[in-house]
Design a protein around this nucleic acid. Structure first.
Lengths: 159, 159
DNA sequence: GTAGGAATGGGAATCATTATCAGAATGACG
DNA sequence: CGTCATTCTGATAATGATTCCCATTCCTAC
């Protein structure tokens, strides 16, 4: 890509963009790579990463950074928040409007020049909830130990 | 650690906890490791990671996941939001109260069982702002290219 | 004391992402 | 059209934060 605000729309770039826009989920780079390879078998994962990055910087798509290790991408570029399943890593859109006043408040109350903000909700998605097998058998500690409250089931801590 | 809500308070664990509580910043694991080694030279980075994780799960400290690659930790366990510098990665507390109503709204409007939420503000901190050298010399694109608006200065995208 | 579980240190492994680089594709311009 | 500079691609290596592994050490209960 040049630095004059233009880029070639190569076949690879186009297919990546088309496929992402056609999916209404929030795929990771390798999930999208698998899908793009159906149309273009020789495309490499590096090309997918490279173009997702460029397309996100250019504003065509959104890169989502969640609590999970892997980044996710989406075709929707409207400003909105996300909801992540702490069990399986699935990401959905959160049904609450983005709040620019909050960002403005932080901008005014600090020495930072605030550019953006991100909100992420963490929870258990319907399908993980169905297949759950909770057994919180807590006993009380004693002896020369420090006791504590578990803030959440450790197994739920998605990656 | 056992799974009966107790843990030994080993010397390593104690020193890690004390040092983190004494710092009023938001260090990464390796920053804290350097500091702890001043008191306990043989402690390994793996032990620091292990104990930060356990202490966070037990609710003694907070693990902060920001846009940066490295996680950060803090002694303050009150519910609050963070503000990250996109240039240098520095993290500060955001001076706005945590909003539990927002989380409740998402819980009620989705099939998820929402457990928590995170809010992160991104901006340029005062010291990076001072040392900035902006030169947004945008020319218009032409030819068989796709033009776009840069949503932000690429260099600001803190890893 | 001693046995058994828990924790440590150090180094290897993991894994998402980025860098590198030679060759292929593309666009500009005569 | 042909050439040339630039951009892009595919393959693979490198990176780096975090976790895993495991032999040894440490604690705690009895």
């Amino acid at each position: 890509m040049t630095n004059d605000n233009t880029m070639r729309m190569t076949r690879q770039r186009q297919v990546i963009l088309e496929e992402l826009k056609a999916m209404h989920t929030h795929p990771t780079a390798d999930e999208l790579h698998r899908r793009v390879r159906a149309r273009m078998p020789s495309i490499s994962l590096a090309t997918v990463y490279r173009n997702l990055k460029l397309l996100a910087e250019a504003g065509f798509i959104t890169e989502i950074r969640t609590v999970g290790v892997q980044r996710r991408y989406e075709g929707n570029v409207d400003d909105h928040y996300h909801l992540t399943c702490v069990r399986c890593g699935r990401v959905d859109d959160a049904p609450v409007p983005a709040d620019s006043d909050l960002q403005e408040a932080v901008n005014n109350a600090t020495g930072y020049r605030v550019l953006s903000h991100r909100v992420e909700f963490l929870g258990v998605c319907p399908s993980c909830e169905k297949s759950s097998t909770q057994n919180p058998t807590a006993r009380s500690g004693r002896g020369n130990r420090v006791s504590y409250k578990q803030s959440h089931n450790r197994k739920e801590f998605y990656q």
